[in-house]
């Protein structure tokens, strides 16, 4: 299983990019008021039909041909539900998929959020053809990273995975995260 919530996000969002999504919206919302850590992943990829959606939380279902198990979504679901939280996945063929996992923030069974900045940077630099809209909210504060804004500034000739830009993206994520959560251990 995964050791961090952020690794679950990385894994599930990888599926969004494989589904051909041009835009993946990821939200991480920490609320002490409702004692929740909510993760949302929404994509405009190829989506799934009703039967696939029903089966996707079954660890013995996968569309891959390289192995017979599909643990990504079941891991994520189990991690959220183990805290007393909830998990939902909805999808429509040709429209996209939406995943929402709610973790009880104070639960002793909640795994740490982990290195969410690294997760986001990984997704962005290794999927240059996909746009990401990332929102991080910590109680009343929040920030947004939109790769479409980056793309507009950089144009076509400077790739996200060039060392300077990759470093900028990491700094952008880290500095804004720190500003929003004050370096809280989540």
């Amino acid at each position: 299983m995964m050791t961090e919530i952020s690794l679950n996000i990385l894994d599930v969002a990888e599926n969004s990019t494989k589904a051909g999504a041009t835009l993946v919206e990821i939200g991480v919302m920490v609320s002490h008021l409702s004692d929740t850590l909510t993760v949302t992943i929404k994509d405009n990829g190829c989506g799934m039909d009703e039967e696939q959606v029903r089966k996707v939380t079954d660890p013995f279902y996968t569309t891959r041909t390289t192995r017979k198990v599909g643990l990504g979504v079941p891991f994520f679901k189990q991690a959220a539900e183990a805290t007393g939280g909830s998990f939902e996945i909805t999808s429509k063929k040709g429209v996209g998929t939406y995943v929402k996992a709610v973790f009880v923030l104070s639960s002793i069974d909640r795994m740490p959020l982990g290195d969410i900045c690294l997760t986001m940077q990984n997704l962005i630099i290794y999927h240059p053809e996909t746009d990401f809209l990332y929102t991080y909210a910590f109680d009343s504060k929040s920030f947004v990273l939109d790769t479409r804004e980056f793309r507009e500034i950089l144009g076509e000739d400077i790739p996200f995975n060039s060392p300077e830009i990759a470093a900028y993206i990491m700094d952008y994520l880290k500095e804004n995260t720190l500003e929003v959560d004050g370096g809280a251990a989540i």
Partner: peptide, 19 residues
């Protein structure tokens, strides 16, 4: 907070290198 202005400056610096 990290600004997009910095990214613009970086772009100018990198254009030459990209070529």
């Amino acid at each position: 907070m990290k600004s997009l202005e910095e990214l613009k400056a970086l772009r100018e610096k990198m254009r030459a290198q990209v070529n």
